[in-house]
Amino acid sequence: MHTLFAPKHGVELWLYIAGSLVIGAGLLLLLCQTPQRLRKPVIAFVTFLGGLYFTLEFLIPHDNYFTHVMPEVVNAEIVVSCFTLFIGIYNLFGVHGRAIRRKQPGWYNSVAFFAAFFLIASAGFIKDMRPDSAATPLFEILFNGFMNSLQSTTFSLIAFYIVSAAYRAFRIRNSESVLMMITAMIIMLGLVPLGSALTSFIPANSFFSFLRLEKLSYFILLLPNMAVQRAIAFGVGVGSMAMGLRIWLSLERGSFFDEEL
C-alpha cells in the first residue's frame, strides 16, 4: 500500500496518472449505468458521508484522526471545486458569441467583452512565464487601471444611492418608518465628531450625560441593536441547523431536490 502511493517520477508517473484517469473514467461509466432507482440512494449516501466527516471531527470529544487529516481534506475540497471554472466561461461565451454572430444591437460591446477576457487572461499567464516581457505592465494596466477602478467606482456608487434612498424612504409615514428614521439620525450624528459636538454642552459627568449624542448612539448600538441582532442570529442559527440537517440526511424538498433523475 505504502509503495503504491509513494511519489513516482518520469514515465512511471505519467503511466500512473493515465492509469488513474482510466480507472476514473471506468468508474464514471459504471455510474452512468446505475439503474434509476439506485441513483437517489447513492446521492443520499455520498451526501451523508460528506457530512459525517466534519460531524465526527467535532462530536468525538477529544483529539482525533479526523482533525489531523483536515488540511488535506480541505485542500482536496478547494481543488475539486475549482474544476467548475469553465461552466461560467462557457455560458458567457455562448451569450456574447451569439450576440456577435447575429449582429444584435450593441454587439460591439460583446466584442469588448471577448477582448477584455483574452487580454487579461493571456497577459496573466504570459507574465507568470516571462516576468520581464511586456505582459507584466499590460497586466498592471488592465488590473489596476481598468478592473480595480471599475470595481471600486461601482462600489462607491452606493455613497450616492444611500443619500437618495434615505431622502426618499425616511418620511413620517407610520410609526415604523419614524422609528427607523429617528434611530438612523441619532446614530449618524453620534458616530461623527461634528454630530456629537451638537450636544457637547451637556456636561460629561452630569445626570443628563446619557443624552449626549455619542452616548445615545453608543447605547442604541450596544443595547437595542445588539439584542435585535442576537435575536435574529439565534433564529438564523436554528434555521441553518435545520437546513444543514435536512441536507445532510437528504430530507430537503424543493425543485432542485425533487427532480426526476
Partner: peptide
C-alpha cells in the same frame, strides 16, 4: 473624519427637508 461629519449632517438636512415637503 471631517468629510464624513459633513456628509452625515447633509443627509440629515435632506431627510428634514423631505419631511417638510411631505
Amino acid at each position: 473624519a471631517w468629510s464624513l461629519s459633513c456628509a452625515h449632517i447633509y443627509i440629515i438636512l435632506l431627510i428634514v427637508l423631505g419631511n417638510i415637503g411631505y
